[in-house]
């Protein structure tokens, strides 16, 4: 009887792993295709798409596409710009949105339910619909910098960062997470005479790792994939991000697919690195969200 039980368990385990491996293969195929294709000449790459060879390191392999891609476009500049813009926006977003959520959850003030509802309603407005008025606004905004007073934010890093620091989705995520924190912790801290700032910094945020990771990853992906906004507000090559840079490879009728794949491989590295660094916290956040009653 015990033998049968053990067999059943082994079978279940094997089938579970088989499904997981299948799902993993499905998810890894695009990445595998991208990396393998980046090592092949364009003509071979296109021919290989008709078979499984597309996913295998076969044929004439070299790093020539990478060399050509770096000659065609200032890839390092684009990647650094995107990492800088994305990094700063994510940090500021986490700070501002968590503070806003803290105020919504723990601080009593009149009208917060109405304002929170209005905030949530903005989730249904796509950014693209406000880009034109936003463009007109930022083109007239004043700025005082090292070079003195100037009018207009176009062609700067700040115009790519400031409009995206606060967003309703991140605030919502923090609010949902903060609501589930034990109220006793906050009340005890207040009784001990802690200020709201101290409670935010010393009590709430140290407990909020999962939601910080989730909000950071979502914001990172949104910012790293920005295309239309930087296209509208940035004219200088020196401050262009990676997605606009992709246009350097896709404008011709005869697209250099090998170089496109090399470029995509290079610009995917920061995304993977960021995700992998926060993977454990992200998964625990998703898991804990899933079991919440």
């Amino acid at each position: 009887m015990a033998v049968v039980k053990a067999d059943n368990r082994g079978l279940r385990l094997a089938s579970r792993y088989a499904v997981l491996i299948l799902v993993a293969i499905i998810f890894i195929f695009p990445l595998l295709f991208m990396v393998m294709s980046s090592l092949k000449p364009s003509s071979q790459l296109l021919l290989d798409t008709k078979s499984l060879r597309a996913f295998l390191p076969v044929g004439e392999l070299s790093l020539q596409n990478y060399t050509d891609a770096f000659v065609r476009a200032p890839i390092a500049v684009f990647v650094l710009n995107s990492v800088l813009i994305t990094g700063v926006t994510v940090l500021l977003c986490l700070f501002v949105c968590s503070l806003a959520a803290f105020a919504f959850v723990f601080v009593d003030w009149s009208g917060k339910a109405v304002i929170f509802s209005i905030l949530l309603a903005t989730l249904i407005i796509p950014y693209e619909t406000i880009f034109i008025p936003l463009l007109l606004m930022v083109s007239q905004l004043p700025w005082v910098g090292l070079e003195g007073f100037e009018l207009g934010w176009l062609n700067t890093y700040r115009v790519q960062i400031a409009p995206f620091i606060a967003d309703a989705l991140s605030i919502f995520l923090f609010v949902q997470f903060f609501k589930d924190l034990p109220k006793e912790l906050i009340e005890a801290s207040r009784v001990e005479g802690a200020s709201w700032w101290t409670i935010y910094r010393r009590v709430v945020m140290p407990l909020s790792g999962p939601v910080i990771a989730t909000a950071a990853i979502l914001k990172f992906l949104f910012m790293y994939n920005q295309y239309l906004w930087p296209l509208m507000v940035v004219q200088e090559e020196a401050i262009r991000p990676v997605m606009v840079g992709l246009g350097y490879f896709t404008d011709q009728l005869n697209v250099p697919w090998g170089e496109v794949m090399a470029y995509l491989t290079v610009i995917t590295v920061p995304v993977l690195a960021f995700y992998l660094s926060l993977q454990r916290v992200f998964i625990s956040s998703v898991a804990s969200t899933g079991v919440k009653g």
Partner: peptide, 21 residues
Amino acid sequence: LETFPQLAYNDAVGAAALAGE
């Protein structure tokens, strides 16, 4: 000189015209 990817060029000009740039 400032160069743009062809795919994005017309949109960039349209946006710049709106912004007076």
